[in-house]
């Protein structure tokens, strides 16, 4: 493939409830070692998880010093005053930092200022893309559900930087109900932060033992990990240059290097996927959405 030196890798917001130490260590490693250009920080799933988290100042400093561009992500479901307060404190960091809106309330707060739009805002067509761009969106991460033909049509008219998730479990749904608490027979108000027990989410199986989904507090994710390694050249040809890796409890430094090396043409597709599969032994990968198939499917490309 053509070398994609212009392509940028970004690390999406951490979706899971890790403790402050683990988060700190994780981002320090990213700052020091990962070939990642943009890092999204902040809690997007549940405002309750913000309690007692103190990693942010150190992490921001370390990432800044390492030359990583920082974007702050806002909550994706804003219901009560606690959610709104959390979101307002994120939005208040504009214009010093670029803020990623993941709910229409955030879009409204950032209207006519430069901002980013996250994958939890529904952008399915050109007119919607234009509306957000006219409102100040300069960087837009598209919904993972979009097939290649939609991505192509959007890339054709985009004035903003478009981003697509190429690695990690796919965000599929958000609720006001906490499924982690429910699976532990707890109420949301007394959840005891049980979601922190599963650093990569809790697997959901069918009654016949099929691997089905993953729950992460209020959020539901795919069981399979999206991997668009094979699709990178085509995405580049469309004009999409920003690729999001969603953080997982795996060696993300190594994962990011595999994608970077592939983009730089240092390794071929087969080699890249072999290394990724060796690193993430026994993981199910999928690329179905891109190929207009069910998201859980792995479509063989040649």
């Amino acid at each position: 493939m053509d070398v994609m030196n212009n392509a940028k890798l970004s690390l999406g917001p951490l979706l899971f409830n890790w403790d402050s130490d683990k988060i700190r260590d994780f981002y320090f490693a990213i700052a020091d070692e990962a070939p990642i250009d943009y890092v999204y920080l902040g809690e997007v799933v549940c405002a309750k998880r913000l309690a007692g988290k103190n990693y942010l100042p150190e992490v921001v400093e370390r990432l800044d010093n390492a030359g990583k561009k920082i974007i702050f992500s806002g909550l994706m479901l804003v219901l009560d005053n606690r959610d709104m307060t959390a979101l307002e404190s994120v939005a208040a960091m504009a214009p010093e930092y670029l803020i990623e809106a993941n709910d229409m309330s955030a879009v409204s707060m950032l209207w006519q200022q430069n901002h980013a739009i996250g994958p939890f805002i529904n952008i399915y067509n050109e007119a919607t893309l234009k509306y957000y761009e006219d409102g100040g969106a300069t960087r837009i991460s598209l919904p993972p559900e979009l097939p290649a033909k939609s991505l192509r049509a959007l890339a054709k008219v985009a004035r903003s930087e478009l981003e697509v998730q190429i690695f990690g479990r796919l965000p599929l749904a958000i609720s006001s109900r906490c499924y982690h608490a429910r699976a532990h027979k707890l109420h949301k108000d007394g959840c005891q932060y049980v979601c922190e027990k599963d650093p990569d989410g809790m697997t959901v199986d069918t009654m016949d033992g099929q691997k089905f989904l993953t729950i992460n507090g209020l959020q539901t994710l795919s069981y399979s990990y999206c991997n668009l390694m094979a699709e990178l050249p085509e995405l580049g040809q469309m004009g999409i240059q920003n690729f999001r890796l969603s953080p997982h409890d795996v060696d993300m430094v190594k994962v990011s290097r595999i994608y970077r090396n592939r983009l730089d043409g240092k390794i071929d597709l087969e080699e890249a996927n072999d290394i990724l599969e060796a690193e993430m032994f026994a993981t199910r990968f999928s690329n179905g959405y891109y190929h207009d198939e069910p998201g859980q499917k792995q479509v063989e490309t040649s």
């Binding site: 994706m76 479901l77 559900e145 599929l172 749904a173 109900r177 198939e293």
Partner: peptide
């Protein structure tokens, strides 16, 4: 049970959302 309009569980399994 999910926030409507923000759920793609159906297309993840069936391809239709």
């Amino acid at each position: 049970p999910m926030a409507e309009g923000r759920c793609s569980m159906s297309s993840y399994i069936t391809g239709k959302s």
